[in-house]
Structure formats: structure tokens, C-alpha cells
């Protein structure tokens, strides 16, 4: 068993009474430290795959293995702590907590995790704020930031707990190409230094080509 593996995964959504098959039997494995892109046209199932790996959704059929555990065997509490301790999630629409400033947003997962002393925590947050280049925006609320800045806060928040796996759903889709490239560079850098596994989705070819591995989706199936 691989640490991350999808085995013949099917996912149907219910739209009213209609079953919409989003994934029609997807299988692949990802090794630790990989930098993987999930590519495919709109509606091909990229978000669905990432949601399943991110343990925020469950498969209709098949097995999803994360950190060597079958997610279907875990209850809500266990899935939540898996998300907290093992995974970092970067959302397409950033999804920051609107009432918290940059510093508090990034610190939040650490407060939930409770494994650092206040001093260590501050050092860690400061390090990542520096890393994403937001030193001068620590006290800003999300509404006071540009899209690129927000996405960088979201990245810092996903990385701050030093998760084994970071998932990013079209992290550059809402950014201009220059900002998008700097975000990708940041992710690559962290991947090579910390050996963090990165899985992200995109339909931007220039970004796709920078990945070491591409999983190509179409109509809920993997294109060989």
C-alpha cells in the first residue's frame, strides 16, 4: 500500500434525483515528496479528486488511502485530525477567515494543533509570513489584500503546520500569470527543501509543464 493511493475510485453527485458521475473509476498512487499536477478540462473531475484526497468528501465506491489509512475506515473526528495534522489545503477562492488578520489566519491551524509553545508558534508564523512576502501586511484583514496576497496567506496557512501533503485546487486560477508563477515557484521551493508532497490542479499549460508528474483527467477518467 502506498501512503497516498486511489483504487478504482468512483464518485457520483446527486443533482436533485439525477446521478452525475464525476469520477468513473480512477486509480493512481503518489509517492512522498512528489510534485504532481492533476490536469484536465473543466468538469473533468479535478476538484473531486482533490476533495477525496483532502478528506473533505467521501468516495461512492473504491478506496482512498491517505497516510497509509483507508479514509472510509475513519470517523469524522479521525478524518478531522488527519486533515489538521497531515494535510494542508489551498483553496481556489482562498477561503480565509474574514474576521482574522494575516497573522491570525496563519496562526490558526497551529492553535488547533497545540503542539508548539507560544514562542515557537510565533517564530513559525513569522517565518512563513516572511517566506510568502507579507511581512508588511501582518495586521491586514483579507478584505484589505489583493488576490495574490490572499493566496499567499492561504499558502502560508496550509504550510504552517508542516503537513506531509499539501493540496491546492487551481491555486493560480484567480491570479495574473506573473503572480501565479511566483506562487508556483514558492511551492516548488518548499517541495524541494522540506520534501512536502504537493498535489495541485490546473488547466494552465505553462504551469502544468513545470510539474514532474502529470495526471491527466478527462470525463472522470485518467487519460493514459
Amino acid at each position: 500500500m502506498h501512503p497516498i493511493e486511489l483504487v478504482n475510485v468512483k464518485k457520483d453527485y446527486l443533482l436533485g434525483n439525477v446521478r452525475v458521475p464525476a469520477l468513473k473509476g480512477v486509480s493512481f498512487a503518489i509517492e512522498p515528496g512528489e510534485f504532481t499536477v492533476i490536469a484536465g478540462p473543466s468538469g473533468s473531475g479535478k476538484t473531486t479528486v482533490l476533495n477525496l484526497i483532502g478528506c473533505v468528501d467521501t468516495a461512492t465506491e473504491g478506496d482512498v488511502v491517505i497516510a497509509s489509512k483507508k479514509t472510509s475506515d475513519l470517523n469524522d473526528r479521525e478524518l478531522t485530525s488527519l486533515r489538521l495534522n497531515t494535510l494542508g489545503f489551498i483553496f481556489q477562492s482562498f477561503n480565509l477567515i474574514p474576521v482574522l488578520d494575516v497573522y491570525d489566519n496563519i496562526e490558526f491551524p497551529l492553535l488547533l494543533k497545540k503542539d508548539l509553545t507560544p514562542k515557537q508558534r510565533k517564530e513559525r508564523v513569522d517565518y512563513f509570513i516572511e517566506r510568502v512576502g507579507l511581512k508588511n501586511h501582518r495586521k491586514h484583514r483579507p478584505s484589505e489584500l489583493s488576490g495574490g496576497q490572499r493566496q499567499r496567506v492561504a499558502i502560508a496557512r496550509a504550510l504552517v503546520t508542516k503537513p506531509q501533503i499539501v493540496l491546492a485546487d487551481e491555486p493560480t486560477a484567480n491570479l495574473d500569470s506573473k503572480t501565479g508563477q511566483s506562487i508556483i515557484d514558492l511551492m516548488k521551493e518548499i517541495n524541494s527543501i522540506d520534501k512536502t508532497t504537493f498535489i495541485f490542479s490546473t488547466h494552465d499549460y505553462s504551469i502544468m509543464n513545470q510539474a514532474r508528474r502529470i495526471i491527466q483527467l478527462q470525463d472522470g477518467m485518467i487519460l493514459k
Partner: peptide, 16 residues
């Protein structure tokens, strides 16, 4: 809803 979902996705337990 989206904020609550985000918090849950980050790792906030139901009781939290």
C-alpha cells in the same frame, strides 16, 4: 457556510 466548511477542512472538530 463556506467559512464553516473551511474551518472544518483546516481541521476544526465538530465540537469546536
Amino acid at each position: 457556510t463556506s467559512e464553516i466548511g473551511t474551518l472544518r477542512a483546516i481541521g476544526l472538530q465538530r465540537r469546536q
